[in-house]
Amino acid sequence: MSKKIEGGCLCGAVRYESDAEPLFAVNCHCRHCQMTSGSTHIPGIGLPAAAFSHTGDVTWYKIQNDRGGQSMRAFCPTCGTPIMGQIEGEEILFLHVITLDDPGGFAPQMDIFESSAQPWDRFDDTLPRFAKMPPMGE
């Protein structure tokens, strides 16, 4: 996805933009993504928080995650659209690509948190899957 990242919520109260290239593109099947969206998974891209800006108020909800930290989720308080997630203390946003003005170019690299996936969810068999997070350097 090489074009400017722009999008917002259902009612238009929140708009965002970024010139950054996505750091990653994944389908997340974790329980928090399921419960936030009311769906089986959230397709998202990673962006540096410093390269992302938005107008309009968002509400952040915090919940303990399984790694001992706080997962935060932002949604529009007017229409409820869930827009992005972030791990507290980390500088990467997980932007929900459906909220992009044009999400058609999304190309996920992997599925994560397969261990939490609902049995009726369907996966692209060509993509790597991870029970939780992929191995990464700390």
């Binding site: 919520c9 259902l10 969206s37 009311g38 769906s39 089986t40 397709p43 659209t81 909220t99």
Partner: peptide
């Protein structure tokens, strides 16, 4: 599109 936008996900079950 309304379900997609309301959920932030590609569909709702």
């Amino acid at each position: 599109t309304h379900c997609q936008q309301a959920s932030g996900a590609p569909f709702t079950t």
